[in-house]
Amino acid sequence: MQDRVMEKAAALLESGVCTRVLGWKTGEFFYDVTPAVFTSAEEVRTQMVYNPFCGPNLSKYLIAESRKEGKIAVFLKPCDTFSFVQLQKEHRIARDKVYAVGVQCDGMIDMDSLKALGLRGVTAAREVGDNLIVSTLYGEKTVPRREALSLRCRVCKSKRLNDCDEIIGEQGGDLPSDRFAQVEALEAMTPEERFAFWRSELSKCIRCNACRNVCPACSCEKCVFDNPGSGVRNKAAADSFEENLFHIIRAFHVAGRCTDCGECSRVCPQGIPLHLLNRKLIKDMNQLYGPYQAGADFDSKPPMLAFTPEDPEASIITNGRDGQ
């Protein structure tokens, strides 16, 4: 798979299908893979990587990249294609300037999972069948691949590659996923417990804005939190509780547009499970307005922007859920 991706990237540049390729390159560490734009086959061959650590979702970069001169080729994993479609629905990506290559995905590995398996001093990892052979400073270890998967990939919702010009590997389909299990656990808590949970999680936030900057749904020209005129910018920094609300507000801003790609939690340096806020809203919307998956297609109406007379009314929702 890795070779096929690299070959394709080089070929697309050489044949002139595109002038640039959006892919990944290695960062400071081998597992620290970063999105990068390549302009020649030479660059692709020397710098580009595609490996089981290529978690970053490239879709958001297309907002800026598709506005530039010439066509850009992009490699998208199934979950990235949901963001790709969602951004097109919001008219954020010029589709004619993009050549989308879908890449079959068997789930991405992440360092936290390897650490959880007790591996230290990891220097390299390669896939052999269903296993992952991990080189460490203390010798080679073999672990089952599925145990090294990132948490988000363990509850993968779909292997479907949406709206791609070309596919490497095989097209997949939607999967049964118990991605709401954690949300259900939170719902089972008492309000006090839940408040304490979120207070403790969100108080770790250092407001580095990584979650916002990586989020494909957070693509506003000017974020309300950067806009002095919005009246919320200074509030968020005023005290720790207002600060916590940053994440709640962000979750509401992306409600109905979040594809549940899980990038927010991946990039959080403090390990806050931010995706749970989004999942809770997704779960509620599914329950109230019928199943909806952002970015799954071009025609469905986002529940927060659509209205039918059958929509439940707020008072009825409260009564129903609290059983009052």
Partner: peptide, 12 residues
């Protein structure tokens, strides 16, 4: 200057 052109307003 702040408009994303996302069509959310048009839809509602």
């Amino acid at each position: 200057l702040m408009c994303n052109g996302c069509s959310s307003c048009e839809k509602v």
